[in-house]
Nucleic acid binder design. Structure first.
Lengths: 200, 200, 200, 200
DNA sequence: GATGAATGAGCTTTCATTCAT
DNA sequence: CATGAATGAAAGCTCATTCAT
């Protein structure tokens, strides 16, 4: 029941993260300066250090926050659908919309590019993977039970599906195709993953 | 074809790029210092600047070099096969081997993460995409003509397939699945993309 | 009026300029390192950059500051006198005193020597010339009106007089003559310029 | 009796100095790079070091060379005249012509500006001063003997005259006046120094 | 608690100088 | 002798971090 101007430390912390995601998305985590994040959050430079021990910690927290947001958004959307096909379609649409309208760029961060300063990023990725995997297995089990799909290796499907959708959703990646509406894109990807490219 | 100079020992420029790929892969392009690249190449710091105008230019050249190498390697391997299934399988194997044994990390660089300093990276990505697309279209046409596969949007398939394979091949990405041999992985991905997950 | 910032302790910017004049005078603007200027000002290296965008900007500001100070000092001294002869004498004395006791060396900077890095120095010199010229014209007009001197081209006299006095005042330039007291020097120069060397 | 392509070490050394004067005049002695001087001389970078121990030595030699040339040129021109007035006029003309057409900029170098790297510049200036002084004294003696001028302190006149003429001849210094022809300029300066500005 | 002036480690880049050819 | 590729000391500048207010 937080009132205006009464959000306390947690709310302030989140403000900074949101500002950081904005700035990091625009300039890249290395080129972005703490001062810019502070300005975007409407606070002083020193105040950032009241909430985060270092820039690295702010980056970690921002990535974790964005991953959480992203996962929740996708899962909420997908869970609303019944069939695997509908879920697939919904997922693609959600990811595309997210990538087109949000500071999605953080999700693409490559531990390797960043490795110089962030040792714990890999652990974060593994943790997230485990959650996605558990969720996907539920969907697959239900789909198999319903006779809609055949059983496949969940980690294989997770890796392939996420890789495919995230890559397709990148705004700079697929000229010619990226003009398709999210609905069309969802349709196409669902067709591809359900039916394959083999002669029908 | 050289951007700056081609003096001194033949291939000195290429040596520097290879050293850069090594170091950039380990530390990330931002954390890596030019001095480390020079040391890895067995030369003095100043010598790097005899061959590259700036760190940015070295990064650009390194990414381009790696993309070129990677594309050639994959294409060579894939072109040796006849059927689409065999090509798919070969491609997965090649990418996994490459990612496990080479300084593959450069390929994952996200222009957004890097945007502060490199304006021309996006153009490089688009250029590469065009080459991959032309190549994939040939394969698809042949496959369709042979009655092996159905016709699909090439950019869709390229985006999905490359995203899937690159993501699966990431050494830090898919716990449990990444222990499979390249041959097994190729088999699984080929099955997935040819047959889909729909009830057969 | 400030070019960059005016923060922190009042006059911090001016402190840096004074320190810069000291160090630049000793080592020369090229050999002087920013760190030395900072040390002379009793601050850290980075702080200089809070007040000046670059070394070039600090040099510009320092030269402008010194010119201003010098011009004010000379004009104040000269304006106190009545006759042209007394003004001439006072001017020589003032310049000699200034050159002997202050970091006068900046005034001798030659745009040509410096041209590599400072494009706007010439404009600064022209601006200063205009101010000196206006001032000298007033003096000449009054002197002519009083029947003390004949009319001469003001820019000719300004160039000749300033060149002569500045050159004579250089501590390294005129052995044998530079031992004369400022009062004697003023007397001699006044004689020279008023009476000329022609047979009387 | 040097023939073409047979000038030997001395000729080569002089070529480098001339090239250095050219480049130093354009870029300033600090911004100018040895490589540029070498290129201007049409030789390799390393060859410069066959003739000069260091950049500082090249600078010293170049300044000395230019001073020598300048002094000889002025003296030759002036010695051709008979009266002091004609000599004065000739001197001004010569200096202006030299400054407008040659790499005169070296003459304006201020030991203070440069002091970081060149300890012996001051000695060079004193040495030159002594030679000019001896020469001027001869002229003055003759002028006094001929009843053309009154006796003045030679060092005073040297300092004032050289300062005045060099300052007036600076291409960037005296707007409005610098359009006058060398002949006019000589006339004016001769008038000024012979007659003074006092009421006639 | 919030701030932002001050700081200096750390980085890129330059260029005088060397020396193997 | 002449050369220019190689070098690393040195300098300008940035920015994460601190701490007095």
């Amino acid at each position: 029941m937080t009132t205006y101007k009464e959000k306390g430390r947690e709310g302030r912390r989140e403000d900074i993260i949101r500002a950081a995601l904005e700035v990091f998305g625009d300039k890249g985590i290395f080129s972005a300066r703490i001062e810019e994040v502070a300005a975007a959050a409407g606070i002083g430079k020193g105040t950032v250090y009241e909430y985060f021990r270092s820039k690295d910690e702010l980056i970690s927290a921002s990535i974790r926050y964005e991953m959480e947001e992203f996962a929740n958004m996708v899962k909420d959307t997908v869970d609303r659908e019944e069939t695997v096909r509908a879920k697939l379609k919904a997922m693609v649409e959600a990811v595309i919309l997210h990538h087109r309208h949000n500071c999605h760029k953080m999700l693409d961060i490559n531990p390797a590019t960043v490795s110089g300063s962030m040792k714990d990023l890999k652990a974060l990725f593994l943790e997230q993977n485990a959650r996605w995997l558990a969720w996907l297995e539920e969907i697959l089990d239900a789909g198999v039970a319903a006779g809609e799909i055949r059983r496949v290796n969940p980690q294989l499907l997770l890796g392939a599906l996420m890789g495919a959708v995230m890559n397709l959703a990148r705004p700079w990646g697929n000229p010619g195709w990226e003009d398709s509406t999210p609905a069309e894109a969802g349709e196409q990807v669902a067709d591809l993953f359900l039916g394959g490219i083999g002669r029908d």
